[in-house]
Design a protein around this nucleic acid. Structure first.
Length: 606
DNA sequence: GCCGTTTTCGGCCCGACTGTTTTCAGTCG
């Protein structure tokens, strides 16, 4: 989207707020325009605008709110100059400086940048050569021109590139509506299938999933796989012969990319065994972590790559190879950095000081406090599928000490207060009975209680007092604004039996955005009243994200990592919640379900 | 245009792959 279009929108819709994605696109287009104008002259502006764009796209707070709170400068990569441009953008709907950068570049260039393999130079050349001016039709225009065989006649283009352009446009049009980012667990499954295929080759020594998958980012774009071998060519061939390949995108000496069914891209990189450590490091990323790490190394006169480390000034110097990541980081004077932290948010500085936190681990978890059993509670939402006994058995196999049974509250509209009391009393008796013997691990009597639109809980105090404690969460009316939603939640948290705020942002990946909250207020309230925020491990919730977790950890607000399971086998999703917690720099002591049964009982009674 | 373990000035990661080229430009991660 370009400046002009933005202006039209903001005039037409007085309340039209530019979302971070739109702003990131706009800054990306500024970088592209600079590239077209003069790549060498503006090379550092290009890098700066790209960096700012990706920073804004990944920000969990809307730019308009950051401006209101005067916190725009806290975003990495946004300095005084871009900050002023963004203020102008939000205020006036356009930016004078951007208009200057865009001058002479047709609007029709920018839609083409969405298509893989078409960059600014190529897009500009095509648009100019064929005088294409309409940004709405430009993609189909190019397609028709390619079909007429006119692109191959252009200097710098040939038959192959013409064919490639047709192909990527077709794929783009086909996948435009579906190829969204995968949820982490879904991507894991695809990666697992490919790794299984790779292990069938006798030439593969080691094979691992890296990239955002290894960093455990909640959504994954491409899947990255690394392998070690003595015979790269055989391994690359084996890779491109994967049975579910839709198309081979690239096939080189040490790397290859394929599209698998569903349109997901898988990248493979290869190194010999003795350089596998530096390959792990390189291919795990993130990109910004690697760039920062390489700048850091450069200052010590070292140059890093997937091949290893070499000394910069000495042209004769041999590259030093690494079979493990540990040694790689060590030679830079750094502690090994857990992949979940490699997002360039201060981890390199802390590693240099030897002050990285010891992160919570799956083995630290002593129970799951948000499990829905099939106890006949006549709930407002889904009932679980497994019995309490099955869930307790499963918990025991995992090595837990306790389970929190947190079914949805009995539906408000269908039950009188005394009926509700009766149901919960029955459940309480059932749990007392389960706890009385030695057969099972311990159970907590909990409920997941809705917070209605006005912040009221649909069950009264008498019922609440039957519980060990309550989780409260939002399942309706997601459209409230930031202030209304914050007040609604604060009100819902007020009862002394409430100890956990469930899936706090309400997001459903690829389905529903999170609602915005005043986190400052929520966190302060939780700290004062000893309420834990839930880290929900449900595959398409993965809620809350790492940035909020980190804020909570900084403010000493406790967290609970739960699976929200509706069947016993789903309790295995705990590992995804753990990953989120790690990404938020959480330690064992930050997580209440690392406490023993007694410690936890004491915590929620205090 | 951003940023700070040597810096408020002077740096800015490193490499693979492809197509169209006879040594490189463009794109990507």
């Amino acid at each position: 989207m370009r400046g002009k279009l933005v202006l039209i929108f903001s005039v037409r819709y007085t309340h039209f707020a530019m979302l971070n994605k739109d702003i990131a696109d706009l800054l990306g287009n500024v970088a592209a325009a600079y590239t077209i104008k003069d790549e060498n002259k503006f090379r550092f502006q290009i890098i700066a605008y790209q960096k700012a764009a990706s920073s804004i796209e990944n920000s969990s707070t809307q730019i308009s709110n950051l401006i209101k709170e005067n916190k725009l400068g806290t975003l990495p990569g946004v300095g005084p100059s871009i900050r002023e441009h963004l203020k102008e953008l939000v205020k006036k709907g356009k930016v004078r400086h951007f208009e200057w950068v865009f001058k002479g570049i047709p609007d029709s260039v920018f839609p083409l940048l969405k298509i893989p393999s078409l960059g600014p130079k190529t897009a500009y050349k095509l648009v100019k050569s064929f005088n294409l001016k309409n940004p709405v039709t430009v993609i189909t225009d190019i397609k028709l021109i390619a079909m007429e065989g006119k692109i191959s006649k252009l200097a710098g283009f040939g038959e192959k590139s013409e064919k490639d352009i047709l192909q990527v446009i077709n794929e783009y049009e086909k996948g435009k509506n579906k190829a969204k980012r995968m949820t982490l667990p879904f991507a894991f499954q695809i990666a697992e299938n490919i790794i299984t295929h790779m292990r069938k080759s006798k030439d593969v020594i080691r094979v691992e999933a890296l990239g955002s998958l290894r960093r455990m980012v909640p959504t994954v774009g491409d899947i990255d796989i690394a392998a070690s071998t003595k015979h790269p060519r055989n391994v690359i061939n084996h890779f491109t012969n994967y049975p579910y390949v839709e198309r081979v995108l690239e096939k080189g000496d040490v790397s290859s990319s394929i599209l698998v069914s569903g349109g997901h891209q898988v990248d493979l990189m290869i190194q010999p065994e003795n350089s596998f450590g530096s390959l792990l490091q390189h291919f795990t990323g993130s990109k910004s972590h690697n760039i920062h790490l390489r700048e850091y190394a450069l200052k010590k006169g070292l140059s890093l790559s997937e091949y290893g480390i070499k000394k910069v000034p000495d042209k004769e110097s041999q590259i030093k190879k690494y079979d493990s990541e540990d040694k790689f980081y060590k030679d830079l004077g750094l502690a090994w950095i857990p992949p979940e932290l490699r997002e360039d948010t201060g981890e390199i500085e802390q590693a240099a000081k030897g002050k990285l936190p010891i992160l919570v681990d799956l083995n630290d978890i002593k129970g799951d406090l948000h499990v829905h059993s099939n106890f006949p509670i006549e709930p407002s939402h889904d009932l679980g599928k497994s019995s309490m006994e099955e869930i307790l058995e499963k918990g025991k196999t995992i090595g837990y000490e306790y389970i929190g049974f947190a079914e949805h509250n009995p539906s408000f509209s269908k039950h009188s207060s005394s009926e509700m009391y009766k149901i919960i009393e029955n459940k309480r008796k059932k749990i007392e009975q389960l706890n009385s013997g030695k057969k099972y691990i311990r159970s907590f009597n909990l409920l997941e209680v809705d917070i209605n639109t006005r912040g009221v809980l649909p069950i009264d105090d008498r019922v609440l007092n039957l519980l060990d404690f309550a989780i409260v969460s939002i399942h309706t009316s997601f459209g409230l604004n930031k202030k209304e939603m914050t007040n609604r939640i604060l009100k819902g948290l007020f009862h002394k039996k409430v100890k956990i705020l469930g899936h706090p942002t309400g997001r459903m990946i690829n389905e529903r955005d999170e609602y915005e909250l005043d986190w400052e207020k929520i966190l302060n309230f939780c700290y004062k009243n000893k309420i834990a925020l839930e880290i929900n491990s449900w595959p398409n919730r993965l809620d809350i994200d790492d940035l909020i977790i980190r804020k909570a950890v900084d403010k000493n607000v406790k967290l609970a990592i739960n699976t929200d399971s509706h069947a016993a086998y789903q309790m295995a999703n705990m590992k995804f919640g753990i990953a989120l917690a790690k990404r938020g720099w959480a330690k064992k002591s930050d997580i209440i379900n690392t406490f023993s049964y007694n410690e936890l009982s004491e915590w929620f009674n205090s």
